[in-house]
């Protein structure tokens, strides 16, 4: 059933509407509720395929559905429409305005309506792609404050990597933080790259959602066996590699590979002169789970994230 979660009148002949599709057993009958949200950032489209595929598979076998699946494919419809990460006209990052305010400006009002509608979910997945600059291995990021509740769930989500990161005051205005602090278990998924759909990752994530639905008793049909993820919990597990100079990045290695210390990930070149400006090399051995996708770089641009090789080996040997 399609419903409007919240809406606001726009100046000229249009309404801003946040929509959802509720899938539930034909006779109703309650059961648990999972909510899948995506599109907070208008340039992140990986979740679009997941929402479609989730709905398609459920409609193919409605007999296995024993709970509620709410699909919210576009929390920031203006951003998606204008190929803009934030909320156009306001230059606001929508994932910095939660929980919003019922009596606030239009965006705060919309944010509060979204939170109100999601409250009561037994589990929420907030699907992000990376931005347009980076490609990411399918992963779940967990604020250490919510580790205990979320880590066991994340392990059943069929991702390759779980990153438990430190708390940050700035992140308190995210959708996930707002929901987790209200008792709605919410997993943040990052995968793929901005402005594109990686079908393989979409299918992997959809399998993960069915696994979680089975765990919650929402789905009784067959589910794929889930991957055993690498889990990073120590702050110094992850190496951040930034551009040592400005130029054009020519990538050598794909995300997901193991790197030796000193191995080249790519080069930064100057097309004007035909010169090599610098080589980007792994500062230590490890697993490349994030790689620069957008070629133009300035000094400091994020080029890669590498999981410490020892941590990777430890986890893989278990």
């Amino acid at each position: 059933m399609l419903t409007i979660v919240t809406k606001a009148a726009l100046p000229v002949g249009e309404e801003l509407k946040i929509q959802k599709n509720r899938l539930e057993p034909s006779g109703g009958g309650g059961g648990k509720r999972i909510s899948i949200v995506t599109g907070i950032h208008g340039d992140e489209l990986e979740g679009q395929f997941v929402c479609y595929e989730l709905g398609r598979r459920i409609l193919e076998h409605p007999e296995y559905l024993h709970g509620i699946v709410d699909i919210y494919p576009a929390l920031n419809p203006f951003g998606i429409d204008t190929v803009t990460r934030g909320i156009p006209a306001f230059d606001l990052d929508m994932n910095r305005i939660f929980p919003g305010r019922e009596d606030g400006d239009m965006n705060e009002y919309i944010a509060s309506g979204i939170i109100r509608d999601l409250e009561g979910s037994d589990l929420c997945l907030d699907l992000h792609a990376s931005n347009i600059y980076l490609t990411e291995i399918p992963q779940i990021r967990i604020n250490e404050l919510h580790r205990e509740r979320l880590l066991p769930l994340a392990k059943k989500a069929n991702v390759d990597f779980i990153w438990v990161h430190g708390a940050s005051t700035v992140l308190e205005a995210t959708l996930a933080y707002s929901l987790n602090s209200r008792g709605v278990d919410t997993l943040v998924v990052e995968m793929g790259v901005g402005m594109r759909i990686t079908k393989e990752y979409g299918e992997q994530m959809t399998d993960g959602i069915f696994s979680l639905m089975r765990e919650l008793g929402i789905w009784t049909g067959p589910v794929a066996e889930v991957r055993k993820p690498i889990v990073s919990e120590a702050a110094d597990d992850v190496l951040f590699l930034n551009a040592p100079c400005s130029g054009v990045f020519i990538k050598d290695r794909m995300h997901g590979v193991l790197l030796e210390k000193g191995e080249r990930l790519g080069r930064i070149v100057n097309p004007l002169t035909g010169g090599l400006l610098c080589e980007v090399k792994a500062p230590a051995s490890g697993w490349l789970f994030t790689i620069r996708e957008y070629p133009m770089v300035l000094e400091g641009s994020l080029m890669a994230r590498i999981l410490d090789g020892k941590r990777y080996a430890q986890q893989r040997s278990r």
Partner: peptide, 24 residues
Amino acid sequence: FWTIDNTDINRMFPGFSEGETTQR
């Protein structure tokens, strides 16, 4: 905001000399 990635320098303090461009 910042030319390439639309980040806001006034959301990057105290900054980080080894970080991303606007953090630097």
